[in-house]
Design a protein around this nucleic acid. Structure first.
Lengths: 185, 185, 185, 185
DNA sequence: GGGTAATCGAGACGGTACGTCACGTCTTTTT
DNA sequence: AAAAAGACGTGACGTACCGTCTCGATTACCC
C-alpha cells in the first residue's frame, strides 16, 4: 500500500465546503450559487474546491444527497400496502428536504448535458431509498422499475408544482392508493 | 376600438425569434443558448428580444410550447381505457418533441426561482393537452389532478432518465395500464 | 414670396427644448445629458429635436451661448486699462455662467471631431464679446488675436482648474495687469 | 519587506494596454476609442483593463502623459527670458504631442465630472514640466501660478483653435514676449 | 534532516455572456 | 409636413462568473 506524495488534503475543507454549499443552496438557490461564494463561506478558496469537485453540479449533488446521512429507514412489514406507503414517504422525505429541493431543479438541468453527472446521481440514489425500494418490490407482480418511475415521477412533479405543505399525509395516502391499485394483479 | 400609439411591433420579429429559439435549442441545448445567438439567427437584436420576453426562460417556454401549434388532438371514444391511452400518448408527444425535450430541464431549473415563469408555464399547459385531459377525466371516479400528476410526472421522469426510443408503444401500454388500474374504483 | 408647404414648425418647441437643455446641463452635466431626457423635459419627442439640431453638441452650444441674450455690454472708456478690465470681466461672465460652464468641456471634446460644430461656435462667439474685444483692440500696438488668445485661454484654464469663487475681482485684476503689461509697447 | 499575496499582475499587460491606447487615440480619437478595441489591440481583455484603470479617462490620461517618458528637459540658463522661452516650448511639446493632442479635449470633458480624474491629472502634470516651471519661476517678481495659468491656458486655446503647424517658433516668440513683459516689474 | 511534492490562501488571468443604455432612424396615427 | 409615440438596428457599456494560473508559504512523506 502506497501513500500519495505531497501534502495531504485537509478533510475539514471537504466538510466545510459541503456544509457551506447546503446553506447557500437554501439561501440563494441553485442558479445564484457561485463557487466563489461557497469558498468564502467555507473560509477557503476556489482552487481548493475545484481540486475536489469537477463542477458546481458535482458539488451540489453530493451536498444534497449525502451518503453518510442517517440512512432513510424504510421499515419492512412484509405487507405490500404498508411497505409501499413507507416507500412513498421516504421518497418525499428525501426530495422534499430543503437542500434537495433547492438542488434538484438545477441538477436536472445540468445532467441533461453532463453524462458523468447523470451517472453519479443515479448511482448515489441507487445506493439510497430507490435501491431499497427496488429490493422490496422484487416480489411484486409488476416491473419494479415502472413502479419506481411512477412513484418518483409523481413525487417530482408534485414537488415542482405544489407547495411544500401540500405533500402531506393525505397526498401520500392518495398516491400510495393509486400506485397500489396500479400494481395489483 | 382604438389603436395603440407609436410604431407597432413587427410581428415578423416575434415569429423569427421563436423559430430561431426552437432551432438553437435543438442544436446547442438550453444552457448554451444565448439571447445574442437567437438575435443573430433571427436577424434582429437583443433589445428587440428583451422588449418582448423578460428572460431567456420566458422566451424558451413560449418556443417550446407554442399555443398556436396544431392542437394535439386527443380523440374521445367515451371509453376510459382508450381515452387514457390517447392522453398518455399526447403527453409523450408534447414533452418528447425535440424542442420541448431540450427546453424542459432548463425550464424546470428556472421556474424554481421565478414565480412569473411558473405561472406562465402552468397557464400555457393548462390551455393545452393537460387542460383537455382534465375535462375528459371529469367523470372518472378519482381526482383528475392526481391522475394528471401521476401521468405527467411519470412521463417527465422517463424523459429525463431514459433515451428517446424507450418511450415507445410498450412504454405507453405499461404506463396506461398502471394508471388505469389505479383509477379503477 | 412663398411659404413652406405642410404644417409649420411650432416655435414654442424650439424655446422649450433650449430651456430644457439649459436646465438639464446644470443638473446632470454634458456627458449625462441625453436627447431623450431633453425631449421629455420639454414635453416633446426626439424626432422633433433632431429635426432642428443635428446633434447634442449643436443643441447645447445654442443653449449655452444664446444669441438673443441681453448682449454683454463692454463699455468703452477709450482708456486701454479700463477697457481691457471690462473685457476680461465680460469674458469671465460669459464662460463662468452655470450653463456655459457645464457645456464648455463637453463642447471642446466634440468639436475636436466635428468641423461644423467648430465653425458654428467660432461664429457664435465672434458675434459676441470676443468680436467686441477684437474691435476695441484694433488700435492697440499688438495683434488682437494674440491678446484674445491669451485672455480667453487664461480664463478657460482657470475655469477648468479653479473653483467658481476663485474667479473674483482679484483674479480679474491680476490677469488684467499681466495682459496689460504684455501689451505695452 | 513583504510581497502582496495572490498572483501578481503581469506588468507586460500594463505596458501593452498603454501602448495600444496611445496608438488608437491617434488613429480614431478619444470619442471613438473603446475599451474593447484597446483590449483587442493589446491582446488582453476588458476585465483586465478595468482591473487597472477605473475608466477610459484614467487610462487615457496615463497613456497621454506617461511619467516614465524621457523627462522634458527645461534647460536653465539663469536668464528669465531664455528660461521662459524654454518653458513655453516644453509646454507646447507636451500638449502638441499627437497622443496628448488627441486625448486632451476628451479629458477636459471628463474631468469636469470626475474629481478623481481631476486630481490624478493635476498631480501627473505637477510632476512634469509644470512642476519644473513652478520651481524656475520661484524667484520671479510675480505669482508663478498666474504665469503658468496664462502660459498653459494660451497654449491650450491655441491647440484647440489652431492647426498643428501654427504653433511654430513665431508663435512661441510672440507668446513668450507677451508673458515676459507681463511678468516684468 | 534535507529533498520532493502536493496542498494551502490569495488573487490576477483570459474568456464569455450578461442585461442595459443611448444613439439616430423609421413607421404609425393624428393634427 | 409636422406632431406624438414608440419600435427599430446598432454598438458599446461595465459587471459577473467561469475555470485556470501563478505566486509564496505550508505540511507531510521519503530517503
Amino acid at each position: 500500500m502506497t501513500t500519495a506524495p505531497g501534502r495531504p488534503r485537509d478533510r475539514r475543507i471537504d466538510r466545510a465546503v459541503l456544509a457551506a454549499t447546503a446553506e447557500l443552496l437554501v439561501e440563494v438557490g441553485y442558479a445564484d450559487l457561485t463557487i466563489a461564494a461557497v469558498a468564502e463561506r467555507a473560509r477557503t478558496t476556489k482552487p481548493a474546491i475545484y481540486r475536489r469537485w469537477r463542477s458546481k453540479a458535482h458539488l451540489v449533488h453530493e451536498a444534497a444527497f449525502p451518503t453518510d446521512a442517517e440512512r432513510v429507514q424504510v421499515p419492512s412489514t412484509g405487507a405490500l400496502d404498508t411497505d409501499l406507503r413507507a416507500m412513498v414517504r421516504a421518497c418525499v422525505d428525501v426530495f422534499a428536504h430543503p437542500v434537495a429541493r433547492a438542488a434538484v431543479p438545477g441538477l436536472i438541468a445540468e445532467f441533461a448535458a453532463d453524462p458523468t453527472l447523470h451517472a453519479a446521481l443515479v448511482e448515489r440514489l441507487a445506493d439510497g431509498p430507490l435501491g431499497t425500494a427496488r429490493e422490496r418490490l422484487a416480489g411484486a407482480p409488476v416491473d419494479p422499475g415502472s413502479v419506481i418511475e411512477a412513484m418518483a415521477g409523481t413525487t417530482l412533479l408534485a414537488l415542482l408544482f405544489r407547495g411544500d405543505g401540500e405533500l402531506d399525509d393525505d397526498w401520500i395516502d392518495t398516491t400510495t392508493t393509486l400506485l397500489l391499485k396500479g400494481i395489483a394483479p
